[in-house]
């Protein structure tokens, strides 16, 4: 029998790969926490990557946040009108956007734009031996490529989420303003009246977790890319799918934790 056919697996090829993949991802994440505290810190590269993640995503985040604000207001108004409660519109929009939609929409957009970019860039560096070239030049590629990008996404995505919420509220205000005369200050005051410090803190904490997840998943998939250019495309694609999936799982868990804290 050929060596390929005689290869032994504990369960099957797919199941074995699934579990070794989880183990590898776990080790990859642990390595990040080990390396992030060690010198050198590559501050300049962190700033560069933050620019790549933050500034270059601003246009897309602005457009999406603005549209979400308008659409959500348009969809909510008829329901509130039925109860004669349109004055609650700013509060409803504030709660929905700041607590839920802002962080989630930002995370999903960044998973698509930033996560795929990181997966493709690092994957391309892997298959063209650029990562090995760093290694043989006595440069720690994990620290230079992975740590800097994950730190950048973890810092930048919460800022983008806050920005997205403000833009969405502005979109909502413009929509409200077309129907009834109201000042932007009173709209924002009403919107934030129903939001507690815990709400803003939990929104930021969630964004930090999403940012970390998007960065680490993109880097992990890119760093483990194989099979040449086909592997690069696969890494970028898997980075997006896995990051989005994990963001939704984290959303459920964090909301449960925040509700539990609120209860006590």
């Amino acid at each position: 029998m050929s060596t390929l056919l005689s290869k032994k697996y504990v369960f099957s090829k797919g199941i074995d790969q699934y579990f070794t993949g989880i183990h590898d991802a776990y080790k990859f994440t642990l390595l990040f926490f080990k390396e992030v505290t060690k010198r050198p810190f590559h501050f300049r590269e962190v700033v560069h990557q933050s620019f790549e993640v933050g500034i270059k995503s601003l246009a897309l985040i602005s457009l999406t946040g603005f549209i979400v604000g308008i659409v959500f207001t348009k969809q909510s108004r008829p329901s509130l009108e039925d109860f004669g409660a349109t004055s609650w519109l700013p509060s409803l929009i504030g709660i929905a956007i700041v607590k839920a939609l802002g962080p989630l929409v930002t995370a999903l957009i960044c998973a698509g734009k930033v996560g795929s970019g990181i997966g493709a860039e690092i994957g391309s560096m892997k298959v063209t031996e650029q990562i090995d070239a760093m290694e043989v030049s006595a440069i720690n590629p994990f620290k230079y490529l992975v740590v800097t990008r994950v730190v950048a996404t973890t810092i930048t995505i919460p800022i983008l989420a806050l920005y997205c919420s403000f833009v969405a509220l502005y979109g909502s205000y413009l929509n409200v303003h077309t129907e009834e005369t109201s000042s932007i200050i009173s709209f924002y005051q009403n919107a934030f009246k129903s939001i507690s410090f815990l709400d803003i803190f939990s929104a930021l904490a969630r964004s930090v977790v999403y940012g970390f997840t998007i960065g680490i998943v993109g880097c992990y998939k890119g760093y483990n890319a194989i099979q040449g250019t086909r592997g690069v495309g696969k890494a970028a694609n898997q980075a997006v799918v896995l990051a989005m999936f994990l963001v939704f799982i984290e959303e459920i868990i964090i909301v449960q934790i925040v509700n539990w804290i609120r209860f006590f």
Partner: peptide
């Protein structure tokens, strides 16, 4: 170590490719 496909850093120009290992070390 000279790689088969050169393994130059795509995002850097020639100057930066050479300066990078030097300034990092």
């Amino acid at each position: 170590f000279s790689f088969q496909n050169s393994a130059l850093y795509d995002s850097m120009d020639v100057y930066q490719n050479l300066a990078f290992p030097l300034t990092m070390n």
